[in-house]
Simulated scan of single mutants.
Amino acid sequence: MLKYEEIAQKIEQTIVDKKLEQGKKLPVLEHLMTEFQASKSTVMKAVSLLEKKGLIYQVRGSGIFVRKQKREGYIRFTNQGFSGELRRFNITAKVLELDIRKPTEEVAENLNIDLTDDVYYVKRVRYISGQTLCLEESYYNKSIVTYLNHEIVQGSIFDYISEGLGQKIGFSDMYMHINKLKREEAELLELNEGDPKLFVETIFYLNNAQPFDYSKVTYNFEQSQFFFQSTGYSL
């Protein structure tokens, strides 16, 4: 973890632990520089990271302030899905399939790879507090995500990619629609065939705009409460 990421994590933890409300002013940059023994540029990068995550906002000439947090029980979606957010919940996973295969045309197009390239295929059910949350099918470009095993995919694959493989995760494209559960989906999510589902397709990119993960996720409608937060507007 880089210095600015460590600082951002500590500030975020302070916000959470002290239950700071919207509008609460945080210490000025100079104070943060002294507290964390860091340069101004490093602290500013930490502040920028927190701002992108929707945890704070800055007012020129006034300071840094806490932003209103999500409602209790809601999961925040970010450009990295919700893997970081899930640390607040009791999350487990059951791995159904893990193998190396050739991509379909759909997968190859979304990952910008050839049909002869290899991908890791991961299929798993994720649980939140013992209840089914979602059914995931993910395809990882093996030239980027060079190794996966059952132990890794039972946890946070994104943590492994960023910390274990040293890759810099950038942004994502997300597509959503509402449909009805098919028989297999219903069985795995412990619901009834024909029940509603939220279906999300996401393409995740490294910070150099290279796609590395194409995921298709079917959510249990009974557990799916999500929170989206913009980080500003540009004209």
Rank of each mutant, 00 (worst) to 15 (best):
E137V: 04
Y74R: 10
P103D: 09
S172K: 06
S162V: 13
D99V: 04
Y74G: 00
M174Q: 11
Q167P: 01
A93R: 15
H177T: 08
M176I: 07
T78A: 09
S48G: 08
A108Y: 04
K52M: 08
L98I: 11
I157D: 03
S48D: 15
V153T: 06
H150C: 00
L98T: 06
F89H: 10
V66Q: 06
K70E: 10
H150P: 00
R60L: 06
T146N: 05
G73K: 11
N110R: 13
G73R: 14
N79M: 04
I152S: 08
L165H: 09
Y127C: 01
Y127E: 03
G63W: 12
L55Q: 11
G84A: 08
K182T: 15
E136L: 06
H177I: 03
N79G: 10
K102Y: 11
I178P: 00
C134N: 15
Y127R: 02
V145N: 04
G130D: 05
T116Q: 10
S172G: 01
N112I: 03
D159R: 09
L50P: 13
T92N: 12
N141L: 01
L111K: 02
G61Y: 10
K52H: 12
F82G: 03
Y74P: 00
G81M: 06
G54N: 13
L133T: 09
K180L: 10
S83N: 09
V153M: 01
G84F: 08
N141W: 07
Y57E: 14
M174S: 12
D118R: 06
F89R: 12
L55N: 15
G61R: 11
S143D: 10
L115D: 01
S83L: 00
K142T: 05
E51K: 15
I75S: 04
G63I: 13
A93C: 09
R76F: 00
K68C: 02
Y121K: 11
I169E: 00
